[in-house]
Amino acid sequence: MWNLNFISENDFKKHVVETIKKYGEKLESFNLKRFNKNIVDPIKLIFDKSVYQMSWAEIINNEIFRQRDKSNNNDIGYFHQRIFQYIKNCRVPQNGEEGGWDVIYENPNGIEIPNAGVVHTIYVEMKNKHNTMNSASAGKTFIKMQSQILDNDDCACFLVEAIAQHSQNIKWETSVDKKKVGHKLIRRVSLDQFYAMITGQKDAFYQLCMILPSVINSAVQELDNSLVPHDTVIEELRVLSEKKNFGNPDLSIAMAIYMLGFSDYEGFKNL
């Protein structure tokens, strides 16, 4: 049974599939050439393997994951933002349109803002994590929100954080030109509190999280197998290590890894 009453099963699954596709080239398989495109640090890999007591396969897979993960936050940002296009009274403007807001929520029945009365529109700037804005960026965002309220006194502006420090819906206070500023209609809101406000369901975000893993697994199974990476790095390293046969398989792989970064260094180039 589908338990989310604020988004249909088809829309939710469609959005999950589109998010997976956004992973794009990061889903491409890693061979040794791609793995070492920016030259890995062999010393770090050697330390990590020994300190964390892991196998070479585990260390290599961790490094591949790290390389893939560097730009995945943008894809998850897509998931957090674009899902609201399927939720009643919300719209997600195209990039740069309607003031560049990430989400706009309008409710003709009014929206109660804690300690600030009722408005009919909320303009949202979304962030993946609470600590991703420096002071200059925070100041610029606050000024944008302040300008929106001056243009329309029947609105509020939210900084919505997917990973907030706390579940919260509070007045946002920051610094602009080294001066502390705040406004009762400019608020810092955790994602769960935003979902609760727009759906009228207190645990809406929790319910979404509970159903998400099964929907992702189902979507991955239905997608083309080409989207599932088949990495060959460790196999290629083992082939190289056999050529560098030092009598110890562990040392032989270590030498193959050294050659990724040090092949032109003195001593190594003779190998």
Rank of each mutant, 00 (worst) to 15 (best):
F6V: 07
N10Q: 15
D11K: 15
F12V: 05
K13H: 13
V16A: 07
V16K: 05
V17W: 04
E18V: 01
E18N: 15
I20T: 02
E25I: 13
E28G: 11
K33P: 00
K33H: 08
K37D: 14
N38G: 06
P42S: 07
Y52G: 05
Q53P: 03
E58I: 05
N61W: 03
N62S: 14
N62R: 12
N62M: 12
Q67T: 04
R68K: 09
D69Q: 15
N73P: 10
N74M: 09
F79M: 14
H80N: 15
F84S: 07
Q85V: 09
N89A: 04
R91W: 08
P93D: 04
Q94P: 07
N95L: 14
G96W: 05
G100R: 04
D102P: 06
Y105T: 01
I111T: 07
H120D: 08
E125K: 03
K127Q: 00
K127V: 00
N128Y: 01
N128T: 02
K129Q: 01
S135L: 01
S135W: 00
K140M: 02
T141N: 06
K144M: 02
M145Y: 05
D151C: 13
D154Y: 11
C157T: 13
E161W: 12
A164L: 10
A164F: 13
A164Y: 11
H166P: 03
S167C: 14
Q168W: 09
K171C: 15
W172Q: 11
E173N: 13
T174S: 09
T174K: 11
T174F: 08
V181I: 14
G182N: 13
K184G: 03
I186Q: 02
R188H: 09
V189I: 08
S190T: 02
L191R: 05
D192I: 00
Q193Y: 05
F194Y: 01
D203A: 02
Y206I: 09
Y206D: 08
Q207I: 06
I211N: 08
P213S: 03
S214P: 03
D224T: 00
L227A: 01
P229K: 00
H230G: 00
T232H: 00
V239G: 00
L240V: 02
E242Q: 11
K243T: 06
N245P: 04
F246P: 07
P249S: 11
P249T: 04
S252N: 10
S252W: 09
M255V: 14
Y258P: 04
M259I: 10
F268M: 11
